[in-house]
Design a protein around this nucleic acid. Structure first.
Lengths: 168, 168
DNA sequence: CGAATGGTTCAACGACTGTAGAACGAATCT
DNA sequence: AGATTCGTTCTACAGTCGTTGAACCATTCG
């Protein structure tokens, strides 16, 4: 299942074939089917359980939690997340999962922001985090793919803070 | 060719078939091949010429240019860009094109920022812009997909400004 | 009028995919 | 030992894909 995760994360849902997974794992394609039932179910199994935990608190606390979460996810994004992220633009199931995760995110963030634009602010935070993960781990943008996580966090601190507090 | 663009933008490279393009255009699949040579060439033709223009200037001017560009791209992202963006995580050619566009971006932005982290700052700006386009046009995150562009720009102004000036 | 040209369609090939089911082997149970 | 179960492999089917080349048609040119 590790090989499946890796392949899904590297090439996405469509380009990952059952045969490739089986070969990478050194077994027969039929065996994969026998254990997981279908490609869709394999993908579901491989990507399950990846919503990052974010609690509540004051806007400043929320901001710091976000930055902390960002730091760890910059250091090494869990492979299940990357498998979903890689396919989120082309595989409906993955799109749905990212939307759901973002909704969770939003609920936790926006309840800490005393602002009538709280929902939009939370969505913007989600978009920024997605952009970072995409740019660093999937697209591997120059200067971002191998930058020091702490440097990135410091540069982004003002952005996250301005998005999570109401007074601008 | 408009139908091809639309399909590529909606479902990405892999899931867009020559047959579907032909059907949408009301012609025969062979005709599409005859005119464009291959699916890859069709994709290249459909997505060519989409790098957004950003000039130089002081950090503040650069920030305003970015926000202006953001405002228009929020109002309606050109379909060619969406075709590339939709496939950037799964189609190597599209990935390469986004990287190249980001490099252009970076060159123009970072030369206006007097900072030894200029390249990283520019990359972060790219990541944020990508995240926004993805969240709004492709994933269609709640509260972001249909938000007022001006509101978004105003909320992001502090972020962009903090990323493009050196003193934090 | 006949030939040639360019747009368009048709039918087919070969490759690859997810999936199903039969077959095999070894280990376990009675 | 014989039967049974479970992990595993083999073979094959049906569908879809990109791509090709022959065929058809209308128009234009000599």
């Amino acid at each position: 299942m590790a090989q499946a995760r890796r392949l899904f994360a590297e090439t996405g849902y469509d380009r990952t074939t059952i045969r490739a997974v089986a070969t990478a794992a050194g077994v027969d394609p039929g065996l994969v089917m026998h254990y997981f039932g279908s490609k869709e179910k394999l993908f579901a199994r491989v990507t399950e359980g990846g919503t990052p935990p974010i609690a509540g608190g004051t806007p400043e606390q929320v901001a710091e939690q976000l930055l902390d979460h960002l730091r760890t996810s910059l250091a090494d994004e869990p492979v299940e997340s990357l498998a979903i992220l890689r396919s989120m633009l082309t595989h409906p199931e993955a799109t749905h999962e990212v939307r759901a995760a973002s909704r969770d995110h939003r609920d936790r963030i926006s309840e800490a922001i005393p602002d009538d634009q709280a929902d939009l602010r939370a969505a913007l935070v989600s978009a920024v985090l997605i952009g970072l993960a995409v740019g660093r781990h999937l697209i591997k943008l120059d200067h971002l793919a191998d930058a020091d996580p702490d440097q990135i966090v410091e540069l982004l601190r003002p952005s996250i803070r301005s998005l999570t507090k109401a007074d601008d």
